[in-house]
Simulated assay, not measured.
Amino acid sequence: MPSSTPTDTVQAANSRLGVGFLGAGPVTQAIHLPTLSRLTELFTVAHVMDVDADVASAVAARVGARHTPSVEALLADPGVDVVAVCSPHRFHAEQVIAACRAGKKAVLCEKPFAVSVEEAAQISAVSAETGVPIVVGAMHAFDPGWLAAEQLWGDLPKTAHTLRSSIVLPPNARFEDFATEVIARPSANEPDTTDPTVIAATLAGGILGLAIHDLPLARRFVPCFDDLAVLRAEVVEPVGYIFLLRAGGRTVELTAQMSSGASAAWKPDWTFEAIGPDSSLKVTFTPSYVQAGSAVAELTARGRTTIAGPFGHNGYEGEWRRIAGILRGTDPAPGAPALIDDLSFALAIAEGARTHILEAAA
């Protein structure tokens, strides 16, 4: 086999997509940079932006990228093909829209990609107008273990009566610190869990910050949720939640517990289940921030269990591979209506929990 020439090397480098990060906190450092380091044939990190110029400089130095404290400067960089929006939630919509209008090829936005249905609709309109595809970083939806489950489950989406998302994790910092050299973690005060408005806000944060990983999965079984009713909504100490709701004729259970202190040694567990009268599905995911292996799917039907996985990559890598496939024309872009409905589902649960808590307090 002939060896590659310098010209071949230059052409390969030029074919890679340049990525620019808006926000250089733990998600960028501990998730996306390690992921892209495994996809150097597809991507190169071109530019890092953070409002803290020292953080931007330090993180960019790890990957030999340009750095700036200015959103506008990054969006004006012709070397940035794909923009990854990893900023606080409240900035997502305006930054996604700005990236689309800047003529970028694609946008990856961390979840949630908006904080209201109105913002989501604006993003959808701008994406359609500019032709810029948007991928929301709900990594479980791109995990090859989940994608294999979709091929196995048959009519389960029509027959399932119960859905469960169960999450048991140590604090994110336990994993963040393995891959993060520059800590950009906001300090947090203990919430007043006796105040109903604080409880409602804490539960909404749990939905939009943690449960939202699995809500797009649940939505595959709940295409219509006009009848959504929150039957139970509780904060779990030290960090967690319990939700019980009915939607689309299904019972949906969402539970989470993030341990701390001595209990941080708990074995992490993250599972999604769909249970029907004749079949059931269980998908076991690796914890957030863990860069190893895919989910494993187990489908039981007619007394027989079929197992799919683990596969060679996880959902973090899967979402970046999807972007490359979209831009190469081999994969479809996520449909805007589905993205809006996924967000609407999350917001409806958060609002239902708020109403449930305030009515109980009254």
Score class of each variant (00 low, 15 high):
121 A>V: 15
101 R>Y: 05
93 A>P: 07
146 W>D: 07
126 V>R: 08
108 L>V: 15
146 W>Q: 07
100 C>E: 04
103 G>F: 09
93 A>V: 00
133 P>I: 00
115 V>C: 14
120 A>F: 07
123 I>Y: 06
119 E>A: 12
119 E>C: 00
143 D>P: 06
134 I>V: 15
96 V>Y: 04
112 P>Y: 06
127 S>E: 02
140 H>I: 14
109 C>R: 02
147 L>N: 12
143 D>N: 00
102 A>W: 08
100 C>Y: 02
89 H>I: 13
129 E>Q: 10
93 A>N: 02
129 E>N: 03
100 C>I: 05
103 G>T: 06
128 A>F: 06
140 H>C: 15
116 S>D: 03
149 A>D: 01
114 A>C: 08
148 A>D: 03
102 A>S: 15
95 Q>N: 10
144 P>I: 08
141 A>E: 14
142 F>P: 10
112 P>F: 08
135 V>I: 14
144 P>G: 09
128 A>M: 10
139 M>G: 10
131 G>I: 05
98 A>E: 05
149 A>Q: 02
131 G>L: 06
110 E>V: 04
102 A>Y: 04
102 A>M: 00
105 K>R: 15
90 R>C: 09
132 V>Y: 02
91 F>N: 12
114 A>D: 05
93 A>E: 13
148 A>P: 06
107 V>P: 04
91 F>Y: 15
131 G>T: 11
92 H>C: 02
115 V>E: 15
132 V>G: 02
104 K>F: 08
123 I>Q: 10
92 H>N: 12
100 C>K: 05
137 G>C: 13
131 G>N: 01
123 I>R: 00
125 A>N: 00
95 Q>C: 03
109 C>N: 01
130 T>Y: 00
115 V>K: 11
131 G>P: 08
131 G>Y: 08
130 T>P: 05
95 Q>H: 12
113 F>E: 05
147 L>S: 10
115 V>I: 15
148 A>F: 09
89 H>Y: 14
135 V>C: 05
125 A>K: 07
101 R>I: 03
89 H>C: 12
106 A>V: 09
141 A>R: 13
93 A>K: 03
136 V>L: 07
109 C>E: 06
138 A>F: 13
133 P>V: 02
91 F>V: 13
108 L>I: 13
117 V>A: 12
97 I>Q: 01
143 D>A: 01
142 F>E: 11
105 K>T: 08
120 A>L: 11
97 I>F: 00
93 A>I: 03
149 A>Y: 02
146 W>R: 01
130 T>E: 04
142 F>R: 10
91 F>R: 13
144 P>S: 06
89 H>L: 14
145 G>Q: 09
117 V>K: 12
89 H>R: 14
124 S>Y: 03
111 K>N: 12
148 A>R: 02
98 A>S: 13
123 I>D: 04
134 I>K: 06
120 A>S: 12
128 A>K: 12
108 L>D: 09
105 K>L: 14
95 Q>I: 07
132 V>C: 13
139 M>N: 14
111 K>A: 11
121 A>Q: 15
118 E>P: 03
115 V>R: 13
132 V>D: 04
102 A>P: 03
